[in-house]
């Protein structure tokens, strides 16, 4: 087939739709939308081969605002619908948009299985630790003691850590980003796209109306250098304004600790080097919380294996190559008889 290649390089504006964006003014989702549109332009995405699938919630309005194909589905079920899209047409580039309620409460089971199966898609989970669209109830990622309309005396249940859930479910790619980190996020999303399999990206997103500033203790720009660490494969995990803080693996405690280069005889050699293929390391990194530790962002874990959709289609191709599809023969298999 002769296809005309569009020589005009698309910009992020080409991925904007004619629909009015209807999130609250100041919502973190605006920044994420911009980051995604930039990513699509940067990676040279083909709009007609790109599909955004979402569930229900504030984040799930996302597909209406991206000039590609989109399917705004039902609460919690986007991973299953996106799996169906990939099984029908593995050539499509599927991006899944979900939130902490949609993806980890009502849809927790589907999230578990889409990750376990390793279906080739990018799963962006916008975590704002609250239910926005239903007006402020606590979510499965809300900190214990969160006061909300449904928990006036404070929530009593323990929250889960999305990235830890993803690793536990068997995800082969786990990353974390922050809504307003427009410099870092497109790079992380591009890596997610590059990964063949289910790529899980937790995006910490501020809900300005119902849970404002919940991440402020580590997202404030002026303190970010001391409160966040952007990990890179093969690089020592150093952070801080002075670039003198780092993560050290304490063998006796089998735990990570923060150290300062130049103090107590610590040198750069004592700083743990990030290995994104090391699952155990990833598990430790995703659990680090501020202010005791820097919050880990970037590609935390990436260890590719064959994707589910590739494996499924391989079986289909093998069957097609080895067996003739002769329907009349199929229904005559086994014992038949003739009435004269």
């Amino acid at each position: 087939m002769n296809e005309q290649t569009d020589v005009k390089k698309l910009t992020f504006k080409d991925f904007e739709t004619d629909q009015e964006v209807r999130w609250c003014p100041g919502c973190g989702d605006y920044a994420i939308l911009k980051a995604v549109q930039m990513t699509l332009a940067n990676i040279g995405a083909t709009p007609e081969n790109t599909v955004f699938v979402s569930g229900i919630g504030c984040s799930s309005r996302f597909p209406y605002y991206v000039e590609t194909y989109g399917f705004h589905t039902i609460h919690g079920r986007a991973p299953a619908i996106a799996t169906g899209v990939k099984l029908a047409n593995p050539e499509l580039d599927v991006w899944l948009v979900t939130g902490d309620g949609d993806g980890l409460s009502i849809g927790g089971n589907h999230m578990l299985h889409v990750l376990r199966r390793n279906v080739n898609m990018q799963i962006m989970l916008f975590n704002n630790e609250i239910y926005g669209l239903t007006k402020g109830q606590y979510s499965p990622t809300s900190k214990q003691g969160t006061k909300s309309p449904s928990t006036p005396f404070g929530s009593v249940d323990l929250p889960l850590t999305p990235c830890s859930f993803a690793i536990g479910a068997g995800a082969r790619f786990v990353a974390r980003g922050i809504d307003t980190a427009l410099k870092a996020l497109p790079g992380t999303l591009a890596r997610a796209k590059e990964h063949n399999g289910a790529s899980f990206i937790e995006i910490l997103q501020n809900c300005i109306v119902f849970n404002d500033k919940t991440f402020e203790h580590f997202t404030l720009k002026k303190e970010a250098a001391n409160t966040q660490i952007h990990v890179e494969h093969g690089q020592p995990m150093i952070y801080g304004k002075e670039k003198n803080r780092g993560l050290h693996f304490n063998k006796d405690k089998f735990a990570l600790e923060t150290v300062t280069i130049g103090e107590d005889g610590i040198t750069e050699d004592d700083i743990l080097v990030h290995d994104e293929t090391n699952k155990l390391m990833a598990q430790m990194l995703v659990e680090l919380t501020a202010p005791e530790f820097p919050v880990v962002c970037g590609v935390i874990y990436c260890d590719p294996k064959e994707s589910y959709d590739d494996a499924v289609h391989k079986q289909v191709e093998v069957a097609k190559a080895n067996k003739k599809a002769d329907f009349n023969a199929l229904i005559r298999q086994g014992r038949t008889w003739t009435v004269e």
């Binding site: 299953a80 799996t83 589907h110 299985h113």
Partner: peptide, 18 residues
Amino acid sequence: AEDEIAAVCGAIGASFAG
């Protein structure tokens, strides 16, 4: 699928994809 809901959703996803 992992459950009945995912089963029908997978089918709907396939129909959306053609």
